[in-house]
């Protein structure tokens, strides 16, 4: 509780400070760089005992948890819709970059409009910092084994 309040206060203070900085200033580069280093260190130290992965895991293991989640959900609908939304956003962003016209703005142009204001930049940096803290400290939750997946499919099939 106390640790959460402390981290929350830190994020708010950093966001308000960041809100007053300019995109291209050395202070903005230094503060964002420091936040990246701090979150990486937090993930390496505090997050170390929260992971359940083996040391030998490779990049191919990234897809496995998604597959387990897809098995557990109703016909994988939840995962499929998330992948569809992320794919649509990525596709629209790439199309906007290739098009280059004002009629089809990229996501960063839209975010940039809001972040030119003090409040917009402060909120944006607050959300970014909170997201980084969550990624570093989030407790991994078991998402079901292969056996559970098979059992779930059997139930759906009425076996």
């Amino acid at each position: 509780m106390l640790r959460g309040m402390l981290l929350g206060g830190l994020v708010v203070a950093a966001s308000v400070t960041e809100g007053g900085l300019r995109f291209s200033s050395a202070s903005a580069h230094a503060s964002v760089g420091a936040a990246i280093v701090a979150v990486a260190a937090l993930a390496a130290l505090a997050g170390r005992d929260r992971r359940r992965s083996a040391r030998t895991e490779t990049v191919t293991s990234v897809a496995a948890p998604t597959h387990r989640l897809a098995c557990r959900s109703r016909l994988g609908t939840g995962v499929a819709v998330w992948l569809l939304l992320v794919g649509a956003a990525a596709g629209l962003d790439v199309a906007s970059r290739l098009d280059g016209s004002r009629e089809l703005p990229t996501l960063s142009v839209l975010v940039g409009l809001a972040s030119r204001l003090f409040a917009g930049r402060a909120v944006l940096s607050g959300v970014w910092l909170a997201g980084g803290g969550w990624l570093a400290l989030a407790r991994h939750r078991a998402t079901g084994s292969r056996e559970a997946c098979s059992a779930g499919q059997d139930r759906v099939a009425g076996r």
Partner: peptide, 21 residues
């Protein structure tokens, strides 16, 4: 599957955690 659940599942692997960060 909610977005936090999806992200948590990726955080369980070293490679997934590194990619997200």
């Amino acid at each position: 599957v909610s977005l936090p659940a999806l992200l948590r599942s990726w955080l369980g692997s070293r490679a997934g955690r590194a990619l997200l960060l």
